[in-house]
Design a protein around this nucleic acid. Structure first.
Lengths: 142, 142
DNA sequence: TCTAAAAATGCAATCCGATTGTTTTTTTAG
DNA sequence: CTAAAAAAACAATCGGATTGCATTTTTAGA
């Protein structure tokens, strides 16, 4: 009953559920993302997975994203980062200086900034963007 | 007392204040961004400015960003968009289908999603990321 | 207004994250 | 076990962004 084999079973189940074929590389990526919160760049994921082309990581992650197994995060540096989409809604804070990423659990923006400053972060700011289907597009497809 | 000349004066003042030299291209870009909310991609700005290399737009916008005259927005499509940094704090909503961008004035996330849905948007989601200087980096530079 | 120094621009080249095409290999379903 | 489908490797390419350098424009001081 090792953690590794649990995660292995877990990743197989996730792939099955999404009707994605169950390959070594996909399992490795998924296990890595389940065990480590991230979010991680493709480059970072690629380095952790042995004997695998980075293109394959790109394609796997795209598939995972499409099936909502992972979620993309943008920190405005033109590098996409991905994390395993766990149930709890949360956000992140990236240090402007060292780029370390930490989890933020609180959920109201202004309150969150205050709490982060109390946690020791300085010069806290945030980026928030919304996405949705606008009225025009709903009418077109309807 | 035309709007154009007001904006012209305005853009000159902004450049002066930031100690940036006052060129035709910079004025054009700034006037365009003041008159139109955006946010706009470099490509979009470039198309609006006559006889100007896109590299110059990149460089001007970088300068403006550094001097906090414009602000970068990321919508996760690997295209940076910029808007004139007006005083009022606000966010945006981009249609997942047609990519139209609208302003969002409200400020509490969950409440905002509800209001947007009442405004006619469907499947509303959001991305929120924080930035700051972490404790470790503060200690290093101190 | 003139002039030298500093800054901005245009153009070409390049960078780099991401994507695509094609062949080979692996996985799946029966 | 086998044929069809999917994934992986590898090379090529895309495209937004950046950089280097020669030329032009702007600025600041006389």
């Amino acid at each position: 009953m090792q953690i590794m084999s649990n995660n292995n079973i877990c990743s197989i189940h996730i792939l099955r559920k999404a009707k994605l074929s169950n390959t070594k590389i996909r399992k490795s990526i998924l296990e890595f993302l389940i065990q480590n919160h991230g979010p991680f760049s493709i480059e970072e994921i690629h380095q952790k997975i042995s004997n695998c082309d980075s293109t394959t990581v790109y394609r796997c992650i795209k598939k995972f994203e499409k099936h909502e197994i992972v979620e993309k995060c943008d920190f405005g540096d033109n590098i996409s980062r991905y994390e395993y989409k766990c149930l709890e809604h949360h956000h992140h804070i990236m240090c402007r200086s060292c780029h370390k990423i930490e989890i933020v659990k609180y959920c109201f923006v202004k309150e969150m900034e205050k709490i982060l400053m109390m946690q020791g972060y300085k010069d806290v700011s945030h980026k928030l963007e919304f996405f949705g289907i606008c009225q025009d597009c709903q009418n077109e497809s309807g």
